[in-house]
Every structure is written in structure tokens, then in C-alpha cells.
């Protein structure tokens, strides 16, 4: 459900950057999402295709990189992947004070586009 707002927010950032960089057409956008955000790639793609109808984005592709959850144990320093049911507890020493070091990501990595020809 929140995919639409995420894609809208992402496109606003690209739009602003494109105008600063004199880019008239965006061909590819790469975003990174962590597993814990529960953002669904299909819904993101759908939102992107629905919203990318203007001149800047028409025909652009969305690349989505998904990152799984990795935890870091504050007690013994172990890095581990929690099991299927998200047990945020160190399998090495059993400590529950763990930091989720990967899985929260929600960022726009980069985009590609064509510059406007001639002076802008």
C-alpha cells in the first residue's frame, strides 16, 4: 500500500536532480529496498509505470535491488541472518540486544538519463 508514496517520493528526488543536471529524459532508475520495509517489488513496478507518464520518465525502467535482513550482536560481535520467523536474537551467544544492520534500506541509488542537447 505504501509503495505509491515511496515511488512518488523517489521520483520527486529524481526530478529535482534531473533539472539540476540538465537531464531531459530518464532511462533507468535504481532503488534499493530492505526486506523489513515490506515494499513489494511488483507494487513498486506498478506504481512506477503508472506515474512515469510524463516526458521526463516515459519509457524509463525501474531496477529494484532487494537486501535481506542482517543482524549484528552487540554482545559477541557476531553478524547473522535471522531465521524465517525473524528471531532477532544472536544464535551464537543467545543475546537479544542486536542491531539490525541491513534490511531497513529504502533509498534511491542512482539513475541514468540523456542530457538536453545544446545550452539550456
Amino acid at each position: 500500500m505504501h509503495e505509491l508514496s515511496l515511488v512518488e517520493g523517489m521520483m520527486d528526488i529524481v526530478r529535482e536532480s534531473a533539472s539540476q543536471n540538465n537531464i531531459k529524459r530518464v532511462t533507468r532508475v535504481k532503488m534499493v529496498i530492505g526486506e523489513l520495509t515490506m515494499a513489494l517489488p511488483d507494487s513498486l513496478q506498478f506504481a512506477f509505470s503508472a506515474l512515469s507518464q510524463d516526458e521526463l520518465f516515459r519509457g524509463a525502467e525501474l531496477e529494484i535491488v532487494q537486501l535481506s535482513v542482517i543482524c549484528h550482536c552487540e554482545e559477541c560481535g557476531n553478524d547473522f541472518r535471522p531465521e524465517d520467523d525473524y528471531i532477532f536474537r544472536c544464535p551464537g551467544c543467545g543475546n537479544g540486544q542486536v542491531i539490525i544492520s541491513q534490511g531497513h534500506e529504502l533509498y534511491l541509488d542512482s539513475y541514468e538519463g540523456d542530457e538536453a542537447s545544446g545550452p539550456s
Partner: peptide
Amino acid sequence: MVQVNLQTNILGANE
């Protein structure tokens, strides 16, 4: 073709 690296948090405006 140009590539622009942003590494920008999508929810940055909200944050």
C-alpha cells in the same frame, strides 16, 4: 547517457 549517483534516502523529506 549520463549516470547520476544519489544514494538518497527516499523518505528523507519525511525524516
